[in-house]
Design a binder for these strands. Structure first.
Length: 589
RNA sequence: GCCCUGGUAGUGUAGUGGCCUAGCACGCGAGCCUGUCGCGCUUGCAACCCGAGUUCAAAUCUCGGCCAGGGCGCCA
């Protein structure tokens, strides 16, 4: 850490070079060890702690000091007596002999201890977030986030990108996440939407010739929350003109390399591994597979065609698949542990799991073995490379359901067996997502990414008659099972756009009404363009080795999208409403 | 909207019908202590989410509610 003219000494940075210097220190009382004739205080600031030594006979106020009081001292840096050094802390070689003490502010006993070892519950931490953030671990998270933002800006600027701000009061466009609405005072009865992402605007900037845009953009979505989802979050939003997918891959690999170098001093391997969507789903049961461990799925439909197990047979008859996960060395799982796996499959909409334990010399043990002819058993053992001590799990249902459920079981087993090392960074591109997916509810095709996503050139021929076969120039970047970002090359040709819209039941003219300014802009010379958005919060969480994005957000919301500290959202007073020309008529849920 | 888990001093937890006058650790208060660093010693403070029910007896069982967390749906 370099000193600036604004700062003098800090509690985290003193060392033997400072011996005999007379210095001033400010900070909070982290802990107090009162020995009567001598008092030790660990003084804490953002940078660390330093032991200060007070003689109560010379500093009469010394024995009043309590935890979290905010103080300034001046004193002399000195070596600790021989044998009294503390190797556990950075400043453990030295201590500061206090000459004068200035109590800046006394403090109430905090509602929880400011200590990384003590984890108070979420609600309390959020209510007193300003105290929670005093903890060194939280300071580390905030610093990591800052460094990541700096590294992103530095890298993208070096690549000729311009950071441009897009508006926060926007018009809503159909599809996508539920947006927050803001009533307009000037226009009674009208509302702004808050942007779920700057998607439209960054595409417009390409039409404007901005060529290379980025933004650390706040995005707002009025959806239910999860560990990795907050109503307001940040994206590193990027768009480029005159490029294809390879340019994005190269850029993002460089960007992430720079971020990991600057934040963790870690060299990540590039280029990243690549999998098509179909491959990822088939082999790992996820479009964001964790590549730190194996446990791959295997389609055993062909083999099971010759089994007599009725569930397998009827599934195959209905065009479903039988998928197998060889959980190696899990043959020792108890009945309860297997039930646990089945429960996970059920949560993910599978009716159950069949299972087989592999016993000595490849003998299969399970209630379904009697339905498997010898030939089937042999083929199965070969196909999934089963060996003694393995547990084979089977999902039988339509393709997506089977692999997704087994994919979740795969994750559960890996965390149970502790196969994921948080320090091991396995990046992956998942490519060639389907352009459309069938929506059961509305009985229609829907864009899986968004409707402006370009199809693969070789799939254009399927658009009209077999939309399910159309793959998109869309890509996700995945790190250790977390979708860190996603994007696509956009459509810049009207005829293709028209065809794509037709699949979802829209004419170009109807679409023009919905997305008027964007499609209108495309008429005036639209460059080939594409981009990506990286989930900055998720990325920071991964950099800190955690999975809860709230830990890297200074003031997050709780699961119910409330902030226990400022008590938002708040009731709207009659005055508020009057100003906005609104009457409240709350329809009870 | 649905499912699961939980709610015990300020904090983190133990306690599955009577051994609970609710245990432990940290914390906080008072006192002692000149080399500690999660200081030590003495001593004190402080809790069963709310309501109803079952029972001779409820922190413990049942029902309802509230709150929190995790997940499914949702999030292109």
């Amino acid at each position: 850490m370099t000193s600036t003219t604004l700062r003098t000494n800090t509690c985290g940075e003193l060392n033997s070079k400072d011996i005999k210097k007379e210095i001033k220190l400010t900070g909070w009382v982290n802990s107090r060890r009162d020995h009567g004739g001598i008092i030790f205080i660990d003084l804490r600031d953002r940078y660390g702690t330093t032991q200060i030594v007070l003689d109560p006979s010379k500093i009469p106020e010394a024995d009043k000091l309590r935890r979290e009081w905010c103080v300034q001292i001046s004193g002399i840096v000195r070596n600790r007596p021989k044998g009294m050094e503390n190797k556990k802390i950075v400043t453990g070689e030295i201590e500061v002999e206090v000459k004068s003490l200035n109590i800046l502010s006394e403090a109430e006993t905090p509602p929880f201890e400011i200590d990384d070892r003590v984890e108070a519950n979420e609600e309390l931490r959020l209510k007193y977030r300003y105290l929670d953030l005093r903890r060194p671990i939280m300071q580390e998270h905030l610093l990591a986030r800052h460094k990541a933002a700096q590294a992103a800006r530095e890298y993208l600027s070096s690549q000729n990108f311009m950071e441009i701000e897009t508006p926060m009061f926007v018009k809503t466009t159909p599809g996508g996440a539920r947006v927050f609405k803001v009533p307009s005072r000037v226009h009674p009865g009208k509302f702004y939407a808050l942007p779920e992402s700057p998607q439209m605007y960054k595409q417009l900037l390409m039409v404007s010739g901005c060529d290379r845009y980025f933004q650390l953009a706040r995005c707002l979505r009025d959806e239910d929350l999860r560990v990795d989802r907050q109503p307001e979050f940040t994206q590193i939003d990027i768009e480029m003109s005159f490029i294809d997918r390879e340019d994005i891959y190269l850029l993002i690999e460089g960007l992430l390399k720079n971020i990991f170098k600057k934040v963790l001093d870690s060299d990540i391997k590039t280029p990243f591994l690549r999998l098509t969507y179909h491959e990822a789903m088939s082999r790992f049961g996820s479009d964001k597979p964790d590549m730190r461990f194996g446990l791959e799925l295997k389609n055993v439909t062909e083999i099971m065609k010759h089994s007599d197990f009725s569930i397998f047979k009827s599934t195959i008859d209905k065009n479903g698949i039988v998928c197998c996960l060889n959980a190696s060395d899990c043959g020792k799982f108890s009945r309860t542990e297997i039930e646990e796996l089945i429960e996970i499959a059920k949560t993910h909409h599978l009716s159950g799991l069949a299972w087989i334990k592999v016993e000595k010399s490849g003998k299969l043990e399970s209630s379904i073995v009697k339905y498997l002819p010898d030939k089937v058993q042999k083929e199965l053992i070969n196909a999934v490379e089963a060996k003694e001590g393995d547990l084979l799990l089977f999902a039988a249902d339509e393709f997506e359901k089977s692999v997704t459920a087994l994919g979740q079981v795969r994750l559960h087993i890996s965390s149970k067996l502790k196969l994921m090392d948080p320090k091991n960074y396995k990046f992956l591109w998942v490519t060639d997502f389907p352009s459309f997916e069938w929506n059961e509810e509305i009985n229609a095709w829907q864009a899986k990414h968004h409707i402006f996503t370009s199809p693969l050139d070789e799939d254009i021929k399927y658009i009209e008659n077999e939309p399910g076969k159309v793959r998109a120039k869309a890509y996700d970047v995945v790190l250790n099972g977390v979708e860190v970002g996603g994007g696509s090359i956009r459509i810049n040709k009207r005829d293709i756009q028209t065809k794509m819209l037709q699949v979802t039941g829209l004419t170009y003219e109807e679409a023009e009404k919905k997305f008027d300014f964007l499609l209108n802009a495309f008429k005036f010379g639209c460059p080939v363009h594409g981009g990506i958005a990286l989930g900055f919060d998720r990325l920071c969480a991964l950099l800190c080795g955690i999975n809860d994005i709230r830990e890297v957000i200074a003031f997050p919301k709780n699961k119910s999208a409330e902030n226990p500290m400022d008590d938002s959202p708040q009731d709207w007073t009659p005055e508020f409403l009057k100003e906005l020309h609104l009457k409240l008529d709350i329809v009870k849920k």
